[in-house]
Amino acid sequence: MVVSATTDGGQRKIRRNGSFGYVVPALLLIAFFFIIPVLMLLMRSVLEPTPGLQNYRELLGSTTYLRVFMNTFTVAGLVTVVAVVIGFPVAWLLAIMPDKWSRLVMAIIILSMWTNLLARTYAWMVLLQRTGVVNKMLINLGIIDKPLALVNNLVGVTIGMTYIMLPFVILPLIGILKSIDPAVLRAAALCGANKRQCFTRVLLPLSLPGIASGALMVFVMSLGYYVTPALLGGTSNMMLAELVAQFVQSLVNWGMGGAAALVLLVVTLVLYAVQLKFLNPNRAR
């Protein structure tokens, strides 16, 4: 049969078959040092100390570990909600404000994002400590009498994590909001919608896929965060990533460590797949 094959497509097809070789170095690296070690770790979770699922039974059955899960999901959820609620208006303004000003704000966002994670976490440890600036300011303003405990608990973790995650909400949302045609909202206004209706009926629905996608991304990233919770949270408020590290580093219990890692891995991959499948803003548009 004769089908009109556009010459372009045809060219691509024939000339680019040999290019598999180019991905081989990356593939070898990923296979040997990513896929194999992760699989080996998962094997150990069902083989050590004896074959069976007892590690998972213990992990999901004991109240100690359930508290860790609770902590993890609570913090990740809180961080996500706060970051989205604060991040959306900022992204909104950045999407429409004159370039001169938005560039300055963008520089600040990017600087905070690029600043060393430990430096940022250290800053919050100092700011939030009992004698720190935040407590001092609150006392001076007369809001509180005695310093609040802001570190070594989930409050500190939530503040520190929100700080880290905000740019990850704001930056993608700017793109989403910029891609909405202002004429749509002008049209809504001409149709008689007031500001609130314009927002709830037009702007919000149009940006919802982007918000959901960004929120899910932040949630997933927060679930697996290690450094900030470990430094700001203290030992009694452990999160899942710390648990994994603790099993391996302090307890040298590879079975339990592997099991906890698998739980984290599965939750991450499932949520990531959900994001890719249903919430990818690039696909929705």
Partner: peptide, 12 residues
């Protein structure tokens, strides 16, 4: 992927 999972796996 959570870095800690990769870290623990690679460490092993």
């Amino acid at each position: 992927l959570p870095v800690v999972v990769l870290a623990v796996a690679l460490y092993a």
